[in-house]
């Protein structure tokens, strides 16, 4: 659990992003602490995607500051962000389904002799590391040579998360990790996130539409609506009904059942 008063891993102050005349983000302040799952909630078009794209270096903010461990930083490319310890796991997971677990785990960062693209890959070492790292966050794979295409959605998510952590992510941004998964696999992914949280030194930004999932594992919540933060707080601060209201961007959502009856 994060101690209030400790230096946050990431801190954004007054982030503004404009696309031409359209203001996507209008002064967002955010603090992310190690060992904490920070749920970023909001309806479609609230600015969640814009925010994480700025944090992972896809495009720069129009104004405002990002600090990592207290130091202001500027990302020129996704590579910069990943070097600074921000690992983003996008919805498509960036996996090549046709090749093996190990080859995907080390894709682009293979361990080779002579450190050259034409050096031989140290397959055994890579197999071992991939298996170990995935076991650390809860999935044992019988065969690291198994093609990723044969794995379940939950396993793939775990592979992508394990990969981001192994290559130095201190902040893990998970973009809707539970969408498009079955019940059981959603549970697997939530367990994985919980295990990462327990490692203690990694902060997780969890983008989700699913308030139940957020309530199950998040320590802190930030609600975005129309590019602004409309509410934030720890799990204890928020009563269940608040979450629902805030997720809809402040609009009153009555009892769904009642509303449907009127149709």
């Amino acid at each position: 659990m994060a101690q209030s008063g400790s230096i946050p891993l990431i801190k954004t102050s007054n982030l503004v992003k404009k696309f031409g005349s359209f203001t996507a983000l209008n002064g967002v302040n955010l603090e992310i602490h190690p060992g904490e799952v920070h749920a970023l909630l909001g309806d479609n078009g609230a600015g969640k995607s814009t925010l994480i794209k700025i944090l992972s270096g896809v495009f720069p903010a129009t104004s405002g500051e990002i600090e990592i461990e207290g130091k202001p930083i500027h990302f020129a490319s996704p590579r910069d962000a990943s070097d600074a310890g921000i690992g983003t796991v996008y919805q498509d997971l960036a996996l090549n389904a046709l090749t093996s677990v190990t080859r995907n785990f080390f894709l682009g960062r293979e361990i080779t002799s002579f450190n050259s693209p034409f050096g031989l890959m140290k397959m055994r070492e890579m197999d071992r590391i991939a298996s170990e790292e995935m076991a650390k966050i809860g999935i044992s794979i019988t065969d690291p040579e198994q093609a990723v295409g044969t794995m379940s959605g939950g396993q793939r998510q775990t592979l992508a998360i394990a990969r981001a952590i192994y290559f130095g992510a201190k902040v893990l941004i998970l973009d809707e990790p539970t969408s498009a998964l079955g019940q059981k696999q959603q549970m697997e992914v939530l367990k994985t996130i919980k295990r990462v949280q327990k490692l203690g030194d990694i902060a997780i930004i969890l983008i989700t539409h699913n308030e139940i999932h957020a309530r199950l594992i998040a320590d802190r919540f930030t609600f975005l609506s129309l590019g602004e933060v409309i509410g934030s707080g720890t799990a204890e601060d928020l009563a269940g009904d608040d979450i629902k209201t805030l997720m809809a961007g402040g609009a009153e959502i009555g009892d769904l059942a009642k509303e449907l009856e009127t149709v």
Binding site: L95, R103, S116, M121
Partner: peptide, 27 residues
């Protein structure tokens, strides 16, 4: 040797298998 055993080979497979994934991983 290049295709099955080296980093270059893994890059070739991933470039054809999932171009955006390969790019996202710095290939």
């Amino acid at each position: 040797i290049v295709l099955s055993r080296t980093q270059a080979g893994n890059w070739i497979y991933s470039t054809g298998g999932n171009l955006s994934a390969a790019q996202a991983n710095g290939v």
